[in-house]
């Protein structure tokens, strides 16, 4: 069963339509990426999922039913702009947030012990938030997001401000949580992270769903019949003249454009016939970044606003 589904969701602020009839359904078990440029309506969507605001029209389903106040304990949200009470100590703060999510004091304490142990930060318990570095605060914010064992975990730019070690730590946690059957919603501008982490994405632009699907399907559908070829020495001119060369890689490889209808095999056969030693041969798929820019750049919606 899909853990998150939006059905024709509409949200208007005064005269601006922030979210215009957005529908999507995240397949079960997929790490989900919600993408879009600044001001596209991502935050508006997230705020509706977390029940900070309500949709004007349409429904949001979490675990099969329309999301309501009862679901608050099942949702964990880490906003892009982090915020913690600076004067509270780590333990009190996490306990407070866990209990606001509906955990009993006992359960909250147990959950806290688990996460302190897991992140090896037992010594931070009594420290005030303001004494922690930004990266440390970020870890606390992550724990605050998952401490009540939510089913739906929404992470808005979870890696910003983290060093590579802590980035990997959080990344591993995300994979692990996903494996435990939690629905991860990952929102970011960093396309290389999306490519690495997400299975399924929705691209929002100007309040509308402009692209949706499995990451590998999307990449495939945007393939341009480009291949990267690397050989020992140089490619013979006779061969090169038959193909359109697009670019050279830094390692000296060739990016070759095949005409429409021609498969990679044809190029490979030509290469073998020419007698060069092929070291690399692979299809170049467009990066999500390129797809993103292409879509957001070209997309010209009929403005819902007058």
């Amino acid at each position: 069963m899909s853990l998150l589904k939006l059905d024709r969701v509409l949200k208007q602020y005064e005269k601006v339509t922030a979210v215009n009839n957005v529908s999507f359904e995240v397949p079960e078990g997929a790490i989900f990426g919600l993408l879009g440029p600044n001001g596209a309506g991502k935050t508006s969507i997230i705020r509706m999922i977390t029940m900070i605001t309500r949709p004007d029209e349409g429904d949001i389903y979490v675990a099969g039913k329309v999301v309501g106040r009862d679901d608050i304990g099942r949702i964990g949200y880490m906003p892009e702009e982090r915020g913690l009470y600076k004067k509270m100590n780590v333990q009190d703060h996490l306990l407070y947030l866990a209990r606001l999510k509906g955990l009993s004091k006992k359960d909250a304490n147990a959950a806290l012990d688990y996460w302190f142990d897991r992140f090896g930060i037992e010594t931070w318990r009594k420290k005030n938030i303001e004494e922690l570095s930004k990266g440390m605060q970020q870890k606390i914010q992550f724990i605050a997001t998952v401490v009540h064992d939510p089913t739906l975990i929404i992470l808005d730019e979870p890696f910003s401000g983290l060093d590579p070690i802590n980035t990997n730590l959080i990344k591993d946690e995300i994979y692990e949580l996903a494996q435990k059957g939690k629905q991860i919603v990952f929102s970011t501008h960093r396309m290389e992270q999306v490519e690495e982490i997400c299975d399924y994405i929705v691209l929002i632009n100007k309040g509308e769903n402009v692209l949706e699907g499995w990451v590998k399907d999307i990449k495939n559908s945007f393939r341009e019949n480009l291949f990267e070829v690397q050989v020992e020495g140089e490619l013979p001119e006779s061969l090169l003249s038959q193909y359109e060369q697009r670019d050279r890689t830094r390692e000296g490889g060739y990016i070759v454009q095949l005409p429409e209808g021609k498969a990679g095999n044809a190029l490979l056969k030509d290469l073998m016939d020419s007698g060069v030693v092929v070291t690399t041969f692979k299809e170049v798929l467009p990066s999500l970044n390129e797809i993103f820019i292409k879509h957001v750049g070209e997309y010209n919606p009929v403005l819902a606003t007058a």
Partner: peptide, 16 residues
């Protein structure tokens, strides 16, 4: 202060 430190967003995803 709650507004400018953005803690409010975390809070109101838990309480009204």
């Amino acid at each position: 202060e709650e507004k400018t430190t953005r803690i409010v967003e975390v809070m109101i995803s838990s309480v009204k």
